[in-house]
Amino acid sequence: MMLRIALSSFVGECDNIEYASIPNPDESYRAVIFQRDCGATTGFNTQISILQFNDDLTDSAGNIFIIDGHPKDVAPTVSWASENTLIIHHVLDGSEYKSERVWGWFGSVTINYSTSGS
């Protein structure tokens, strides 16, 4: 039973609940802030993924940013500086599970983190 609980986070037994979707200026991408719910044995967490504009949020983990806490309490403000530059207004302090700086191969997106919490 313990092995099943541990593996459930990796085999698609989680649900993602979208909190906000922020399109880039030319609407080719969007940043999606969401809560990932993997059942009663896990705490709240906030995740961010960059998706192609028309793609749906799947049941995968965030591809660029993951922190503890419910989105209504800890979700950073997210904005686009350009078509290929995303700004996450969050000071990196080492508590993040994931904090990527680049997403994608061709026409990749650069991710910058603000130096202040605003």
Rank of each mutant, 00 (worst) to 15 (best):
G39C: 06
A40K: 15
S108K: 09
A81P: 04
T41N: 13
S21G: 02
D93S: 10
P23D: 06
L86W: 03
D56I: 03
A31C: 11
H70S: 04
D56F: 08
D37N: 06
T58C: 14
S118C: 10
P25G: 03
N84W: 09
N45M: 10
T77W: 04
S21Q: 02
H90F: 08
I66N: 02
D37A: 02
F44E: 03
H89G: 06
G62S: 09
Y97A: 09
C38P: 07
I66Q: 04
I50P: 00
V32S: 03
D56N: 12
T85E: 07
E13F: 07
N16D: 01
I5N: 13
V74P: 05
M2K: 14
D73V: 07
K72F: 13
V78F: 04
H70C: 05
L92G: 13
G43A: 15
H89T: 10
N84A: 11
M1E: 09
I17D: 09
T110I: 13
S8K: 08
D55H: 09
W80D: 01
S95T: 14
A61C: 10
S116A: 06
L51H: 07
S21L: 03
Y29A: 01
L7P: 06
I64M: 00
L3M: 15
W80V: 06
A20K: 09
T58W: 12
I67Y: 03
S108W: 13
R30H: 12
P71L: 01
F65R: 02
I22G: 05
G62T: 11
G12K: 12
Y29G: 00
S95F: 12
S116K: 05
E27F: 10
A61I: 10
W80M: 05
A81Y: 11
G69K: 09
R101V: 07
P25Y: 08
A20D: 15
A31Q: 04
I87Q: 09
E100I: 02
N45L: 11
E83H: 06
K98D: 10
S82E: 01
F44L: 11
A75D: 01
N63E: 07
S79P: 00
L7Y: 06
I111D: 02
N84V: 11
D59K: 07
A81T: 12
S21N: 05
L86D: 00
I87D: 04
I22D: 03
M1A: 12
Y113A: 06
G117S: 11
E100G: 04
T85Q: 12
I87S: 08
A20S: 14
S28N: 12
A20E: 15
C38G: 03
I88H: 00
C38H: 01
E83V: 09
I48E: 00
S60M: 07
S114K: 06
P76T: 01
L57Y: 01
S95V: 11
W80N: 09
D26I: 08
I66G: 01
P76L: 03
I22S: 03
T58A: 15
A75Y: 02
D15P: 08
